[in-house]
Design a protein around this nucleic acid. Structure first.
Lengths: 339, 339
DNA sequence: CGGCACAGGGAAAGGGCTTTCCTCTGACGT
DNA sequence: ACGTCAGAGGAAAGCCCTTTCCCTGTGCCG
């Protein structure tokens, strides 16, 4: 690899001059030298070493994002919003997938710190795990203390700024829609108990139930993994335990799709026999059969706001913003048969 | 941010000693000093500056991947395979989304070079654009010349090793399945003409047509964007031009889903009225209605092999490997009505 | 014509870390 | 008692770049 010094030598100038030309410094350089240098750059195919630059420069220009999995549409959307703002502001973003492994999350915080990122953004549900939360907070605080910026999406009790998707409200909205239609036998296919997102959405559901003078007994809640197969397994369990179910509330769209598959396999039609609702409004939600009634969260905007908070050094901190949920009515929810 | 020197000072030792302890060097250090140093590290919350390390060390340990979009399931799978191998081999991976913008691709090659990556992996269709290909090749060669490793997925005529998904064979397979059933009025919803993937899949389709003494007239091919909405638009156009169509071949699953949506909206049932087939076997393909008959490419394996080639310095280069396609039969393809 | 300002360029000091090469002890052998 | 050697730790030379500070020479003003 050619270095700055190589270019300088070949062009017969000092390293300082090359640096100034390559970086477009305001300092004036004669056209002759500029030509010589640019020619040398081309001939040697010189590209500055980004690490050396980072070391030599003072200001940081890259931000790190930790998500559960970018290929999950939920995080893909958040990341999209984030990336947009990042490139508007001339920042590079490093994406880390934790795959819902708390330890990996901890490691990534260190890694991002080692990379000298300007800000760390943590997106995705938190965990009901006190020891972990404490350790994560310690690491985050250490980073904050040395001038780092932190912003989190949907995490309670963490240092730094926060954008909170209205999970409780979303749960309430979808629950109200279901109970208002008169469903009495409602099963919930829930994501893992350990995730705060689960608890929040469930809390909203419970509030809706209460308002309609219903309850959500725990035997009607099946916890499973946060994906299609988890949804299928949960639905299977729920249905076996109580075949009278007229509605299944899945705590995200992937799980709802798993539910749909099981129902179809059992010869039950949706929504005539059983209604199914999802959560998150992933792009595919409108393309399954029947199209999913679900809850939309402004994910792109959430991502954009999260990085906005982190990069905006002006206002005092920490700041917490809410992102509202809305009900998206499609065809998978209908009144129960006997109603 | 605490530095190595800070830690050394606080522990009352030299920087060399701290470095040795922190990095687990084979050199023996007394337990006493080790304790003092580790305590100082903890107290100062010291994390080594990754950029300084990279500068000081000789061996590179991160690889860069350029894909069209990681959140697209196609690339998500490839990336998954890639990541697995990367972490097995202790490599970090930087993911870059080009969003199918050639210029961005060019920029990312420079950026990855600047980041001193050990290898660059380019995944995703190439472009029928001679000037661009030439420029990209020039950049890649420059990188190769300075000891970099390059490996590409599904790109012809590019410097470096290559893993080639069998797009032509896949096209042939799906085409054969369609024509063998007796379909005569077949429409193709194709991805952009500019992409080599499109040409390859189309070529396979044509070969299948020829074998069945059929042709694929260009008015039966509608080019659109490589996504759900493109698929919908293409289907719309095809159907308006020729309502007798009994089968629609979409060049990827997203487009097939768009086709399904249009057909449903028009009151046509699949596959009774019109058959639809996809390509890629994305996870969702089995969950739409009806489940999609499509072509599976071993994407995870392709990703793994691509990085494997790049990291394997032993064998001579360049090497080219093929990844076979297989037909996945589900329910969206059936004989035409009149057959 | 002396003096000054300023344009144009270079020298060199970092920035944080790794690693080679030394130095200094103390233990061991004879 | 002396030479040797292994063990333990430090000094310092890089790695590649940016940026401040300084020097030279020219043009211009008074």
């Amino acid at each position: 690899m050619a270095t700055l010094a190589d270019v300088a030598r070949r062009a017969g100038v000092s390293a300082a001059t090359v640096s100034r030309i390559v970086n477009g410094s305001p300092k004036i350089v004669s056209d002759e030298l500029r030509d010589r240098v640019l020619r040398a750059v081309r001939e040697l195919r010189y590209v500055p070493n980004a690490h050396a630059q980072l070391l030599a420069r003072s200001h940081r220009t890259t931000v790190g994002v930790i998500v559960h999995d970018v290929s999950d549409p939920y995080f893909a959307e958040i990341t999209r919003g984030l990336q947009r703002v990042a490139s508007e502001r001339g920042r590079l973003v490093i994406i880390c997938n934790s795959y819902r492994d708390p330890d990996r999350e901890l490691e990534y915080v260190e890694l991002l710190r080692a990379q000298q990122v300007e800000a760390i953004i943590l997106a995705g549900s938190g965990y009901h795990d006190h020891a972990f939360t404490k350790e994560l907070n310690a690491k985050l605080s250490a980073y904050l203390a040395t001038g780092g910026r932190v912003s989190v999406v949907g995490r309670h009790k963490l240092a730094g700024d926060a954008v909170m998707p209205a999970n409780e409200q979303g749960g309430y909205l979808i629950g109200s829609a279901v109970f208002a239609l008169g469903h009495r036998h409602v099963g919930v296919v829930a994501s893992p108990k350990l995730l705060t997102t689960t608890t929040d959405r469930l809390a909203g559901l419970r509030r809706a139930a209460r308002e309609h003078h219903r309850t959500l007994p725990s035997r009607r809640i099946e916890y499973a993994t946060f994906d299609r197969d988890g949804g299928a397994a949960g639905t299977e369990a729920l249905l076996s335990a109580d075949p009278r179910l007229t509605a299944i509330v899945a705590l995200n769209d992937s799980m709802a799709i798993g539910a749909l598959a099981v129902l179809r396999a059992r010869g039950l039609t949706v929504p005539a026999d059983v209604s199914v609702v999802g959560f998150d409004d992933m792009p595919i939600a409108r393309d399954v059969t029947p199209p999913l009634t679900t809850i939309r969260l402004p994910l792109v905007e959430i991502g954009a706001r999260a990085i906005g908070l982190a990069l905006d050094t002006a206002r005092p901190r920490p700041r917490v913003e809410e992102a509202a949920a809305t009900l998206v009515e499609r065809e998978s929810l209908a009144p129960p048969r006997e109603a």
